[in-house]
Nucleic acid binder design. Sequence first.
DNA 1: GATCGTATTGGACGATTGCCCAAACTAGCA
DNA 2: TGCTAGTTTGGGCAATCGTCCAATACGATC
Lengths: 208, 208
Amino acid sequence: MTEKAGTMNATAADRGREARRRLLEAAAELIAERGWAAVSTRMLAERAGVAPGVVHYHFSSVQALLTEAALAVMHDLVEQAGAGMERAHMPGEALGLMIDFLTAYDGRDPVSLLFAETYLAAGRDEDLRRSLGEVVTDFRRALAGRLAEHQVPAPDATAAVLAAAIDGIMLHRALGPGPDATDLTAVLRRLVAPTEPGPPATEQGDTP
Amino acid sequence: MTEKAGTMNATAADRGREARRRLLEAAAELIAERGWAAVSTRMLAERAGVAPGVVHYHFSSVQALLTEAALAVMHDLVEQAGAGMERAHMPGEALGLMIDFLTAYDGRDPVSLLFAETYLAAGRDEDLRRSLGEVVTDFRRALAGRLAEHQVPAPDATAAVLAAAIDGIMLHRALGPGPDATDLTAVLRRLVAPTEPGPPATEQGDTP
DNA sequence: GATCGTATTGGACGATTGCCCAAACTAGCA
DNA sequence: TGCTAGTTTGGGCAATCGTCCAATACGATC
């Protein structure tokens, strides 16, 4: 067993974990390149530089491999984004972070495509949907908490719209140029501006 | 030839067009249900109630069938949305139309899924990407024109963000409940309100 | 009747799919 | 030098894939 590490399985177990890691890496790449449903066992093996049989040795199925790989990438990114927001001290900064995302991920990069592919795959896989839902909820909660500190009204709904807008913009940008990122920034700023012209920044009830 | 219509090909050609139409219909359904890459020739034939060979008689390839079906649905929807905005006379109404979309398409319905699947498939098919880009651009242009009439600043960027937010919200809602639609509406209203984000009811120019 | 054009049928084709497995390999330990 | 446990190998398996095509059906025209 691996729990008895240190005895005899030094290089063997290490090589095994390395192969597993490379398979996860290859899966993340191929999901973005070919699409979730088009990733095959042999494709993964070739990209990872292992024999085809290794895939089903380390993972119960191709679906399981794809799921674990996608969730790992997304979890890492959300955690990284959360840490970034932790350092933001002004609402403009928090939004600036969003803008950084917009410039870093243009909708056709591997990360954006992995996100979108996983969203869709989640609609056809119960376990994946639940796990992915947690990731998105975590991100929204972190963002909403940050917005609330900066007196942005309706922080929950604002965070949801902001997160959705980011994803949607990435999706649309994959299709063509569209408006400039700085122009989009100015528009998004309307969402997080606690007070612009006259009214105070207090939490005003949105109930009519 | 078909240009000599009225001669002999009355019922034969009609049955052919009916089969073609049903194949397009089946394609739109199956893209949403199974995902773009998972739709197969025999699947399409069975759903449309025709023999497998008919697929490649009416279409040059499965890809071509999927592309034509997806573009037809999206083009229809955009046209319908454009007509709806044509009837809107107030910015609140135009936004209300967006909200109707949010309630009608919850991110897991066939139309939403078809949109998302087509977005991703476009990233791997040059022709599809170009055609889809035109559809999205048309929609954004119509929306921007409407926003400009209502003195919304930066109408182009606003339209882009608004359209992206709609798509993103649908995408996120597929994963779980999230905030209520009416709460999201209130937040989206900040985007199109040139004056204040508060009371919607009538269009009162408070502080420009 | 014969002839023609279009639409349909059902299967053949090679390629590829996910998954499986007996055998070979690699080390640490006695 | 066995022994054992974890890993890798390479191919086999049945199923499905997209595409193609000869044969057939059928109504319109002669």
